[in-house]
Design a protein around this nucleic acid. Structure first.
Lengths: 340, 340
DNA sequence: TATATTTACTTAATCGTTTACGTAAAACCA
DNA sequence: TGGTTTTACGTAAACGATTAAGTAAATATA
């Protein structure tokens, strides 16, 4: 009930709280003997320093915010894991905030974070985010911001991404090598860096292989799964329907597969399919799906490390770092003509 | 840079910080006129109250901890969503901690939470957890604890679960109705309430239908996916191999499916399969898998609501609530003899 | 008109730690 | 031995918001 603080320790040892504090922090100007007495009693009474008092006085909260669009995406789930691993090791706590892809929510969350609650912010921005003033505001308040995956370029203290252009290029090339001539691309946002990069990789690959980029093959998906299924089905029922299709994000996989099933298109016989995804069960889908897998765990770790490094650094805005980690193309049945 | 605090507002308005504070909190003993002046300036200067100062003084952090074994499980990912929804609406922040199924980590995390950082704790315990002293310690410190899914009974301020016994019973019964006579059960922990309940539901269903519970059909899985695959394969290669199999947790699905593939057992022809899982893509697995799906989002919401209610309540340990939400049996091809 | 009450503030203590600064006693130095 | 340095601690002021208690002026009451 009555939690014991330094005052209690001080009283019992006939010392001042200053001495207690210094002893606990192993200050050089406390005698070894006293330190031991303090440690001992602290342990005995199970003394636990009050986090708010320390944070208030020290202007450090030992807390990071992780602001992400959602958790129900394997990528984000795994990246939380990475962030947590580094944070826990460095003694940091992790506040998780979900924006649900809403820019307004992102803004209001970041605004709240100006109150000293966190030392730094890790963010993967909303598909709706355009303005960057809320990010700048944080940085001006001395709170470093590191982006991961979905970044705004050149305004944070760091960026951790994968080479999305290249991955999309290779994925598209792969489909072409499997004899696809009419490949569709499913986008889920047109304002997002990753979407643009992936789309450009796709376009460039087509052009490099003498294929045309056709507007009708660029399908803008939304946030609702069932709507997307309808959208995709409509696309698959066109004449000149695609013989290959790339889902630029994981959440489009289920509607895409269902759309194929419901339109009686066999994967990969009638249509080859591939996706950007971190699904743990990609290998047991019907059929196993070819994926570009991002090193989500590593990205989380890297982003957290960058942020913590920025927090240690004295300079408020040191060398901004951009780190690009390799993603992995995993070819499976869904895109293979040998299974046709 | 120099963040403005109440002192600055006070100076500019020729008032004391006390007046500022009361005005901002809409105290009755500040004149309407003054309040307006304060509000206006606060907005203009973009005043943001310091969270640590408020927490220190007010002994309330407006923060919850969510302690879970992992995030890479659809159930937990969805439950975070639910918790976050309620927390955000009630102005609470959510710290996420991962125990990675390690009891020691769970203990050390909870110990840290005694420092006032959080007002309350939501927890789904580790598969290794046995002792409950770390939970009691929190409650004695006045920090309410609400369990969800993986609970210790009767020691928290609330428990939110699904009716695991019943769900397992119905699932087993379903397999029996599909003519399974030799059903295996894959466990992943023997100290966990949910595992015991699910196992008992399975056992009771067998007995009620005149089938024997055989030790060899109870398979204790571990935490590593590849090891589990080997374990399951071995089980499938026995003579008298099972003709039905229940995975008690989501993470066993991939190894189970792969094990079936690699032992050339066709699902559902040779073996019927079902699992407890919240996978979003259960319907597009090869084949679509029959699942018991828990209302993860709702459970997160309910648990968070219970906790927040406990925080508002004056009594430190009010009526402990146990809430059981219904899970849903979704029958798909993997367990159906009509697809054999 | 004298007293009581209400209004609208201010003063100062408090939450629990941290730390710049001060200070006695001990140790060292020449 | 007189002075300087070192050792080991204490004092008190932060950090920023909140609030119990106090107060002067305005208003009401009788």
């Amino acid at each position: 009930m009555a939690t014991i603080g330094m005052k209690e320790l001080a009283k019992q040892l006939n010392l001042s709280t200053a001495t207690i504090s210094k002893a606990l922090r192993d200050s050089y100007d406390i005698s070894e003997e006293t330190k031991q007495r303090v440690f001992k009693l602290a342990k005995k009474l199970n003394y636990i320093p009050n986090a708010h008092a320390s944070s208030l006085r020290g202007k450090k909260s030992k807390t990071l915010a992780m602001v992400i669009p959602e958790v129900a995406d394997s990528y984000f789930a795994q990246s939380i894991n990475g962030v947590e691993a580094i944070a826990q090791a460095a003694g940091f706590h992790v506040l998780v905030y979900l924006t649900h892809e809403q820019y307004e929510k992102e803004k209001s969350i970041l605004k709240e974070l100006l109150n000293g609650r966190v030392d730094g912010v890790l963010i993967s921005v909303t598909s709706q985010s355009k303005d960057v003033s809320h990010i700048n505001e944080l940085r001006h308040a001395g709170i470093p911001v590191v982006f991961f995956d979905r970044v705004f370029e050149n305004i944070g203290n760091g960026e951790v991404t994968t080479d999305d252009f290249n991955a999309a290029y290779l994925l598209t090339q792969h489909l072409i090598s499997e004899h696809c001539k009419n490949i569709a691309f499913l986008s889920f946002s047109n304002s997002l860096s990753i979407n643009t990069l992936r789309l450009n990789g796709y376009k460039t690959a087509l052009q490099d292989h003498g294929l045309k980029v056709e507007k009708k093959n660029l399908l803008a998906c939304l946030d609702r799964e069932d709507e997307n299924k309808v959208l995709i089905k409509k696309h698959l029922l066109r004449k000149n329907r695609p013989d290959g299709i790339i889902a630029s994000v994981e959440k489009l996989i289920t509607p895409l597969y269902l759309a194929c099933q419901e339109t009686k298109l066999a994967i990969p016989k009638d249509i080859k399919v591939a996706a950007f995804s971190n699904l743990a069960n990609a290998a047991i889908l019907a059929p196993p799906i070819t994926t570009v897998t991002q090193p989500a765990f590593e990205m989380g770790k890297t982003a957290a490390s960058l942020l913590i490094k920025a927090l240690k650094g004295t300079a408020m805005d040191t060398d901004e770092q951009k780190i690009i980690l390799p993603s992995k193309l995993e070819i499976r049945q869904s895109s293979s003509r040998t299974f046709s």
